[in-house]
Structure formats: C-alpha cells, structure tokens
C-alpha cells in the first residue's frame, strides 16, 4: 500500500504529437516528460502555440484524427494511450476531469447545465437514478458556490455569467471525484476578480478532495498562486522545470526569464511593459539548434548546433547551453 502511493499519479514519458498536413507531418509536441503526484498541482506554462494544451489533449486522446500521438502516459498503472475507446471513456470524466478555457462554448447550448452534469454523473454510475443524479447536481453547484443552485440547475449555459459557467464547468469536472483534474486556461476568459475566485475554488477543492492538478496557463501569476511545480514549454518541448519558487526566483532559462520580466508590476512603478521580441517558430520549419535562439539575447555559436537537452542546473532542470552564466543574475 505504501509502495503504491509513492508511485506518481500520472507519469508521461516521451510524449510526441505530429499533425498530418499537406506534404508531411508537423511536429507539435517533441518528447514531453511529466509526472504529477497525488494531490500535487503542476503548472504548465508557455505562450500560445507552445503545445501546452495539445499535450494535455493528447493524454486524453481528444485530438482530431489528423494527430498522431506516441509515447507512454501511465495513469495509476494503466497507459492512457493504449486503452480501448470504451476503457478510456471510463477514465475520461471519471478519474480524470477536464476544465476548458471558454466555458461558454464548452457547454452544449441546447441542454441545461443540470442535464449536462447529470449526464456526467450517469455516464460513470449506471445505477444512479435520475432523481438522485439531479439532487447530486444541485449539491455540486452548491459546492462550487453557485447561488440558488436549485433554480440554476434548470437553466441553460447562456443564462449563466462567465464566472458562473466556469464554476459549473468545475462542478461537472469534479462530479465523479476525479484523482486528476486537467485545467486548460481555466481563468483566461474571465475578469480579474472572477479569476481570483475561481483559483480560490480550485485551491479549496484540491485541499478538500486531494485532487492532483495540471494547470495549463500562460499567466505566471496564476501558477505562482496555486502550483507546487512548474513546467515551462516552448515550441513543443519542456525547456525548464522545477519547484515553483525556484522557477520564479532562480530561473536558468532566458525564455522563462523573459516571461517573468514581461509580468506587469503592481508596485506603482510606471514602466513600459516588457515583452519578448519576435514570434515563436513555426511547427513545420524550426530553426536548427535551440528553438528559442532567434529570439534569445544570450545566444552563442553553440546554440545553433543542436537542441539543448534538459539538464539539472542548480535546483531546477533547464534546457539551455548558457544556463550556468544566468545562475548569478536575478531574473
């Protein structure tokens, strides 16, 4: 029993995703490794197109047929990538819940919120009566602090506000008490004040239910508040990972440092917003060597030779040839 609990909840090895495109394959994910412990929150950070969402969708095999996925994704002892569709359907929404970015489009517009939560419940418990499921749906809405859940449960998605919809989405995702929750940009589409409420809610659920979480976001502020560990992705690879404080205060990768520098400061100093110059490389035509090299101010000749491997650097792991030079500098 002790042995088993030491095993990570989710262990992903060498995840690769290629998309069939006219004239070949575009490689979106290039060998991602990831572990999530029971009750642990891992932040997955990167800008749009870095492959954060695609890698998580690939785990649950939610990508379109044009995607080719390889690697191993061991969840609680079984490989998600080799399950039959029926076996997978028991895990989806059952032991792994998923929250999506835009709760307006993520709910079916012609079904009530209640009907959609009830469906999630009954898909994983065939013996649950309709009446019991509806009672449970109301309880779940109450659990995520939706006011008047008894009335709200009969409303349609368009009758909910953005924040309420995201709460309902969370209620649906946790309806079967999952061990792992994958949250894909759960706060991006929301107002700042509502964002804080949603993060608080996720934090509370994590403590009460001991759910492991993967939090996909491009907002480092979100990660800082909730994650135990952080993985930074760039162009389909993990380029840095470590404990949240180490990444924030001792990053060894110029890209992570660039992201941190781009955070607006709230201490009153009226500085111009800092960005990272350039755009992420295309998936089809990556530069030779380090993918970040064309945008990197620390680039040297060695950076153009080969992709830098993810190596231990201080408290973290970084994929950068010049990480040693960055160790002394404060980000």
């Amino acid at each position: 029993m002790m042995e088993q609990s030491k095993e990570p909840l989710l262990e992903v090895r060498d995840l690769r995703v290629d998309f069939r495109v006219p004239g070949g394959y575009a490689t979106a994910i290039r060998g991602v490794d990831l572990t999530v412990g029971r009750g642990e929150v891992v932040g997955l950070v990167g800008e749009s197109g870095s492959g954060k969402s695609i890698s998580m969708m690939a785990l649950l095999r939610l990508l379109p047929a044009a995607a080719r996925v390889s690697g191993i994704a061991r969840f609680d002892g079984v490989d998600l990538l080799s399950l039959s569709p029926r076996e997978l359907s028991h895990i989806r929404g059952g032991r792994i819940g998923m929250i999506f970015q835009d709760p307006l489009t993520a709910f079916n517009p012609v079904l009530t919120i209640g009907a959609q939560i009830v469906e999630a419940l009954q898909l994983h418990d065939r013996n649950l009566s309709g009446k019991a499921a509806w009672t449970r749906a109301v309880e779940l809405l109450a659990e995520v602090a939706i006011p008047e859940p008894g009335r709200r449960v009969h409303q349609y998605p368009h009758e909910f506000s953005g924040g309420m919809r995201q709460r309902a989405m969370i209620a649906m995702a946790i309806s079967n008490r999952p061990q792992l929750l994958i949250a894909d940009e759960p706060t991006t589409a929301l107002d700042v004040t509502v964002q804080a409420q949603i993060l608080e809610l996720l934090q509370r659920l994590r403590e009460e239910l001991n759910i492991g979480m993967i939090m996909i976001t491009h907002d480092l502020g979100v990660v800082a508040g909730i994650a135990d560990r952080v993985m930074v992705m760039y162009s389909g690879r993990v380029i840095e990972r470590g404990q949240v404080d180490d990444v924030f205060y001792a990053s060894r990768h110029p890209y992570t440092r660039g992201l941190l520098a781009a955070l607006p400061k709230l201490d009153g100093a009226r500085e111009a917003l800092v960005g990272i110059a350039g755009t992420p490389p295309s998936l089809i035509n990556r530069p030779a060597g380090c993918a970040f090299r064309p945008r990197c101010s620390h680039a040297e000749a060695v950076c153009a030779t080969a992709e830098p491997p993810l190596l231990r650097a201080g408290q973290l792991e970084s994929a950068c040839y010049v990480s040693d030079r960055l160790s002394g500098m404060t980000p």
Partner: peptide, 15 residues
C-alpha cells in the same frame, strides 16, 4: 468541431 463536443468526449461519452 465545437468545443462542447470535446467536453462531451472529455466527460466520458462514447462516440
């Protein structure tokens, strides 16, 4: 191709 179809799959509905 809509998001809510992905949601339905993600909550365990078969095709």
């Amino acid at each position: 191709g809509q998001d809510y179809i992905r949601t339905a799959r993600a909550k365990g509905a078969l095709e």
